[in-house]
Computed example of a mutant assay.
Amino acid sequence: MNTRLQNKVALVTGGSAGIGLATARAFVDAGAIVYITGRRQAELDASVASLGPQATGLCADAGRLDDIRAVYERIGRDHGRLDVLYANAGFYEFGALGGLSEAHVDTTFDINVKGVVFAVQQALPLMGRGSSIVLTGSIVANQGAESFSIYAASKAAVRSLARSWTAELKDRGIRVNVISPGPIDTPGLSGLAGGADNLDGLRRQLVATVPMGRMGLPEEIAKAVLFLASGEASFVTGIELAVDGGAGQV
């Protein structure tokens, strides 16, 4: 039996689909009590049902501070502590420089940066020595990504925040790490492609960038997050772990 997170309390933001849901399932399988957040109640309810009785869903917008506070108020009432935070909620869409809108920039940074800042800040009163924070970055933060500049910049900010927070939280014994996926086959890929008709073409483009010759699976990211969240990574902090099939490495 996998007991790496036995009786730990964990929160996965953006946990109702894709990488977030796969990670929530890995946490449940490792023995954790898991809370997941999402913006769509029906999807959230279905995800919780698939995870079983160790999971609780909380409807929340990752870019709204009031929603973030409400999530931690609930966890505090239920358990009085939080052992693992996986700040995974994110937003992405293509946007060429010449056509960028204020809404595109605001939405991307509200969710991917402001949402991460306050997800971590509001978690701290519940987190003690030995707790773990994992943030979702992206390999595009270190690459020139055509029509993806605002998303890439937001993920570069996440990597920078992790470095600073590693230094800031060291005396509290809280570890902070970043997981940076490469091309991953998630349900959100269809939206990024602009519809199902374009999905196969986008997949081919992405696979062409990966030395391993395929896209990754959400479960492969989840395994890496579980490692960083668990005591097996007790001497690991401040790192960016790329899980990308080599796409950002060679």
Score class of each variant (00 low, 15 high):
residue 162 A to N: 06
residue 147 S to Q: 14
residue 159 R to E: 15
residue 151 Y to D: 04
residue 148 F to G: 01
residue 155 K to W: 14
residue 141 A to K: 03
residue 101 S to T: 15
residue 115 G to P: 04
residue 153 A to I: 11
residue 108 T to E: 10
residue 174 I to H: 01
residue 98 G to F: 12
residue 106 D to C: 03
residue 146 E to L: 13
residue 132 S to W: 09
residue 127 M to I: 01
residue 193 A to G: 02
residue 191 G to L: 09
residue 109 F to T: 03
residue 117 V to M: 09
residue 144 G to P: 06
residue 174 I to Q: 00
residue 110 D to V: 05
residue 157 A to W: 11
residue 162 A to K: 00
residue 125 P to W: 02
residue 169 L to G: 00
residue 135 L to P: 07
residue 150 I to N: 02
residue 96 A to Q: 13
residue 129 R to G: 02
residue 143 Q to N: 06
residue 107 T to E: 11
residue 192 L to Y: 08
residue 192 L to D: 00
residue 178 V to M: 07
residue 102 E to A: 04
residue 146 E to I: 13
residue 153 A to C: 10
residue 127 M to G: 04
residue 112 N to R: 10
residue 156 A to I: 03
residue 179 I to Y: 11
residue 155 K to M: 10
residue 133 I to K: 06
residue 136 T to I: 00
residue 109 F to S: 06
residue 131 S to Y: 10
residue 109 F to G: 04
residue 187 P to K: 07
residue 135 L to G: 08
residue 106 D to F: 01
residue 144 G to C: 08
residue 152 A to W: 10
residue 110 D to M: 07
residue 137 G to P: 06
residue 165 W to P: 00
residue 119 A to H: 06
residue 112 N to E: 12
residue 147 S to E: 11
residue 131 S to N: 04
residue 94 F to L: 11
residue 114 K to N: 14
residue 115 G to E: 08
residue 164 S to W: 12
residue 141 A to D: 08
residue 130 G to Y: 09
residue 107 T to S: 10
residue 163 R to S: 05
residue 163 R to K: 15
residue 126 L to N: 06
residue 192 L to I: 15
